[in-house]
Write a protein that binds this DNA or RNA. Structure first.
Lengths: 199, 199
DNA sequence: GTCTATATTGCGATAGAC
DNA sequence: GTCTATCGCAATATAGAC
């Protein structure tokens, strides 16, 4: 085969690891999915574990690209609107990402730690800055606790995607009119109205 | 050993499965943790898989106990306050539960499906009823979409626990003043104020 | 770079003594 | 009910031909 065996192995591993986790995927299954030989995994990546690491590192880059924006000049409410839109685009373009994050919640790998330490503090700082400016400008309630508010917001934005597999099982068939847009739009409405300073 | 080898195996399995998932735990490790012989797992439960099923079924009972309450007579806002309090107590008494739920988000097992189908629709119905009554009573905004609002609320309540392992890694050291109570109290404030009908 | 064939390891399950 | 010993299997990793 051609040289892009490496890329096809990485893509196949991303798909299979996302769906079934590290342990439920054999290197033979990955090679089969990539239509390559399983020995090439050792050849290109060293081991199955190092292949997984390569997958995680590739996800980091995708996530980082969404955090290069400078939020500090925007209206505080606009920061959350932009963040919601960015998350929507991110999940849409990269459906595997949240499956990895979700799985790593339970059993964090060393390389997931790298992801967390590189990416999350920047996002946290941007959102904390927006909240603080909003309080100073009299937009948000002055008794707001920054850290809980950010975790809350992350929960609102991410839980929808995190639990997507469950919706139909829990609630029954999808309803055509209640989709991603409705969800995120209402998340913004409720969160921003909930933050507002009262009279 | 005594007859309670069975119980000790179940407890050990719960702990180890919660921490590391099904595949990363060997029956030998479980037996070692329980200070029992690994052959007793087959004897009492039939197989490793059936032991896992027994663990999941045991978690269901804990969850079901929190849903026997009749919410239909309460003030709609009070329903969410009670639900938040119940979740807090549930997670506190049973820290392993969310680890299972989180892991099953990614790769749902057959027995997790049973849990979902038994428990979740009741909770969903109770919350949907509260929202609908709140709209009828003029408390909540009339344009509220029920299903997105419930997913939103579940995200606010659960994400804190779901992501607890990550907080210190993401944000730095714990701050003593920002704890569970602060978080849930603010979740309720923001959510309920966000639902309110304007003017 | 790619393949086949195999060395090695660790697991789940069970047979059978006590 | 509990133990030891072991069978059979599947998976990773690698040696070596091409």
């Amino acid at each position: 085969m051609e040289q892009d065996n490496r890329e096809r192995l990485l893509a196949a591993a991303t798909k299979l690891f996302a769906d079934s986790g590290f342990d439920n995927v054999s290197i033979r299954a990955i090679a089969s999915e990539a239509q390559a030989n399983s020995a090439l995994i050792s050849y290109y990546f060293g081991s199955k574990q190092q292949l997984y690491d390569a997958v995680i590192l590739h996800q980091i880059k995708t996530l980082e690209a969404f955090l290069s924006e400078d939020f500090s000049v925007l209206d505080p409410r606009e920061v959350f609107r932009r963040h919601a839109a960015a998350m929507q685009q991110l999940h849409h373009e990269n459906p595997a990402l949240l499956k990895f994050i979700c799985r790593e919640f339970g059993t964090p790998s060393e390389h997931f730690n790298i992801l967390i330490k590189k990416v999350a503090p920047r996002l946290y700082a941007a959102l904390a800055d927006a909240l603080q400016r909003g309080i100073q400008q009299g937009l948000f309630r002055p008794d707001l606790r920054i850290r809980p508010a950010i975790i809350l917001w992350m929960g609102m934005v991410n839980f929808y995607y995190l639990s997507q597999n469950l919706h139909s099982r829990v609630i029954g068939q999808e309803q055509a009119d209640e989709h991603e847009d409705t969800y995120l739009q209402q998340a913004l409405q409720i969160f921003l109205q909930g933050l507002e300073r009262r009279n």
